[in-house]
């Protein structure tokens, strides 16, 4: 093997290691929804290339209202799905869309766009 091949191989492996670490190895911290005066656990979620925050922690048995604001025009993120709670919502660009549901089971659930390109996690405690 010539030196340039060794360099390319090593660099390639480093890149791969970086991708594995960057996308899969880092655990994200969750954001807890706060109980507002309305009796809902409320949280604003920004939809732009992903969900911010994308790990949401809520308490079981208290109604949740997630206010989604989509600030991009790509049609992928237009539909929000929370399949485990049978909820879906159209998110028109720039509008705040409240999605309400009752977390009646404990566990980790996903929410995502229709194609599953953007995803977030909902942790019910």
């Amino acid at each position: 093997m010539t030196p340039d091949k060794i360099i390319v191989t090593v660099l390639g492996l480093v890149f791969i290691a970086f991708i594995v670490w960057f996308f899969w190895m880092v655990k994200k911290a969750g954001v807890k929804a706060t109980l507002s005066s309305s009796g809902y656990q409320e949280l604003m979620v920004l939809v732009k290339g992903g969900y911010t925050p994308d790990v949401i922690v809520v308490e079981k048995g208290k109604p949740v209202r997630l206010n989604f604001v989509r600030s991009e025009s790509a049609s992928c993120s237009e539909l929000l799905l929370i399949p485990d709670f049978n909820k879906s919502a159209k998110l028109p660009e720039g509008e705040t869309v409240p999605v309400e549901f009752m977390p009646d089971k404990v566990g980790e659930f996903e929410f995502q766009c229709q194609m599953g390109m953007l995803r977030g996690k909902l942790i019910v405690e």
Partner: peptide, 19 residues
Amino acid sequence: NQFFTGMWEGLKHRSANMH
């Protein structure tokens, strides 16, 4: 541009997609 902004927004969330 939507591919690059999409990629950037995704990277901020440590996620990758078609973009």
